[in-house]
Computed example of a mutant assay.
Amino acid sequence: MVVPLSHIALLFPTDLYARLLTRFGPDFDVTKLVVSLASKHVAEADTLVVEKETFEKVTSPLFDDGDPNGGLAWSPLFLVNGTQLRMSYGQRTYHARIRFDQVQYGEEQFPTMSQWVRKVANGTSRNAWHDVWFKTPDSDAFQYADAMRQVKRTGAFA
Rank of each mutant, 00 (worst) to 15 (best):
M1E: 10
V2L: 12
V3I: 14
H7W: 07
I8A: 13
I8V: 15
A9N: 14
A9M: 10
L10A: 08
F12V: 14
P13S: 11
A18I: 07
L20W: 11
L21P: 04
L21M: 12
F24D: 09
G25Q: 08
G25N: 08
D27A: 13
D27E: 15
D29Y: 02
D29R: 06
V30R: 06
V30L: 08
T31R: 11
V34E: 00
V35M: 08
S36K: 08
L37K: 02
S39W: 01
K40T: 10
H41R: 15
A43T: 09
A43V: 04
E44A: 12
V49D: 10
V49G: 00
E53Y: 08
T54S: 13
T54W: 08
F55V: 08
F55P: 00
K57G: 09
K57L: 14
V58E: 12
V58F: 14
V58N: 12
T59A: 14
P61T: 04
F63E: 14
D64Y: 13
D65R: 15
G66E: 03
D67L: 02
D67M: 02
P68A: 05
P68G: 06
N69C: 09
L72G: 03
L72S: 04
W74P: 00
S75H: 14
F78N: 03
F78C: 05
F78D: 07
L79A: 01
L79Q: 02
N81C: 02
T83L: 09
Q84D: 03
L85W: 04
R86M: 15
S88Y: 00
Y89Q: 05
G90R: 03
Q91V: 05
Q91C: 07
R92C: 10
T93R: 09
Y94R: 01
H95V: 07
A96P: 05
R99E: 05
F100K: 14
V103Q: 05
V103T: 08
Y105T: 04
E107H: 11
E108Q: 15
E108L: 15
Q109A: 13
F110G: 10
F110W: 05
P111C: 02
T112L: 09
S114I: 11
S114R: 10
Q115L: 12
W116A: 05
W116T: 09
V117F: 00
V120D: 06
G123K: 01
T124H: 09
R126V: 10
A128W: 09
A128G: 00
W129N: 11
W129P: 00
W129M: 07
H130F: 07
D131H: 10
V132D: 01
W133R: 06
F134P: 07
K135G: 06
D138E: 11
F142Y: 15
Y144H: 11
M148L: 11
R149F: 01
Q150V: 02
Q150T: 06
Q150D: 14
V151T: 04
R153Q: 13
T154P: 00
G155W: 03
G155L: 04
A156T: 13
A156I: 11
F157M: 10
A158C: 07
